[in-house]
Design a binder for these strands. Structure first.
Lengths: 231, 231
DNA sequence: TTATCATTTATTGTTAACAATTAATGATAA
DNA sequence: TTATCATTAATTGTTAACAATAAATGATAA
């Protein structure tokens, strides 16, 4: 029941990105990946080609693969697309949730709150993403589910780049009300809540400051120490 | 200014599918492709991996790559997603079209009509697809544009499988009215027209009969001649 | 004939070696 | 010291040969 090496790599990278362990701009060397997953470079290359097709990885010729760095314009497009898709998902999920679905979502909200209190950002992001993806699952449209999966992934990169540390995640009371509306089958309200929820998330972004650090291992280690004299 | 071999292959296959020259289920052999595009198999494999990530090609382990054969359920999901995305696109394109855009669209409608009369199905499909994609371009959201590109591609495969030959394309008068509403900036009407247009397209599908032919070169050549005796 | 099985053929999957390109290092000159 | 340039190292891109798997063919037996 084991996955192909290619899928393993793809999923590992997607997981890492969705938990912000892999920041935008990180180089994904072929050698490093083939060592890590104990496979040949051919598999690594196919995995990177897949990720590039999903716009999660950027492939620069003769330079290698890098985690995509979304521009402000891309960020706007992505959130606009998310609203369109999640509104549709909300409309089709409304009243379709099973008892298990509702239980999962309520548990998920608590899990996210706990992670936030504990300062465990990866767990918080993972929970938040699972919340949105579960509703997509309830809606029962695999195409929209896949699109949303890609968009949440890229959203995480955007939050990592343009979020003033802290406002990066969803407001939990909004998730609460979404589940209420979903369970009650109040379609119009659910759609409105989903739309507003995403608008709030987008409003928390700040594109004025530079996109943080492009980074490389060397720079990450060289940055902390300040110049001894001068200023 | 030439593309990488990988992009060449990807674009050639996408073009062929979008004009129904490559029907669903067609095998895409690595050797055949590397011969055709005068490149090594490594490039072919990356191209196929990209196409698989876009759900346009199915990758069966140890069997090879095949043009995706959408199931009825997938067909429904795809058209549902298309409506959601094209409605959003219509809303954002409304009133944003330049004079060139309008001229292109009107010219495109004539082109499609001409191709239909001439019985040139590939040209008709190409024109129809360009119509939808141009409106996506006007809307100015690259993410939605890419999603729609994928969905129109898969729609073409669906039409090839489940369309009772003839009703396979868009009604041209609908395209006409869409351009009118787009030019006039009548947003609500435009969105309604776009939605109805896609519903009509979907209503023309017939899932009762078997998905046509799975086919292989040999079967295609063997089928026409009937058994001489017996029955 | 029909069905089953071994053999052959073709295709995909894997690996390693080599070439080409780019980044990094260190030397030289202003 | 700073800038420029040649040299070196590392990484990506390409190619070919080999192994593994599945399909096609043909032979054998019922």
């Amino acid at each position: 029941m084991k996955d192909s090496p290619e899928n393993q790599i793809v999923n590992a990278i997607l997981d890492a990105i969705s938990e912000q362990r892999l920041p935008a701009g990180t180089k994904l060397g072929e050698q490093a990946l083939s060592d890590l997953f104990a496979c040949n470079r051919a598999n690594v290359r196919r995995a990177l080609a897949s990720l590039a097709a999903q716009q999660v990885v950027e492939l620069r010729p003769n330079r290698g693969a890098f985690v995509m760095t979304p521009s402000p314009k891309e960020a706007r497009d992505i959130f606009q697309a998310r609203r369109a898709i999640e509104r549709t998902i909300a409309r089709h999920a409304s009243g379709q949730a099973s008892a298990e679905d509702i239980a999962f979502l309520r548990g998920n909200i608590q899990e996210e709150a706990k992670a936030r209190k504990a300062g465990d950002k990866p767990a918080e992001l993972r929970a938040s993403r699972q919340f949105h993806m579960r509703i997509a699952y309830i809606a029962g449209n695999l195409v929209l589910e896949r699109f949303l999966s890609e968009l949440t992934m890229r959203s995480t990169l955007i939050l990592g780049l343009y979020s003033p540390t802290g406002s990066s995640s969803c407001a939990e009371d909004e998730h609460d009300r979404i589940v209420d509306a979903l369970e009650a089958g109040k379609t119009d309200e659910l759609v409105r809540l989903a739309d507003e929820h995403l608008r709030h998330l987008e409003e928390g972004l700040n594109f004025d400051e530079p996109p943080a650090a492009p980074m490389s291992l060397r720079e990450q280690l060289a940055a902390p120490r300040k110049p001894p004299a001068a200023e």
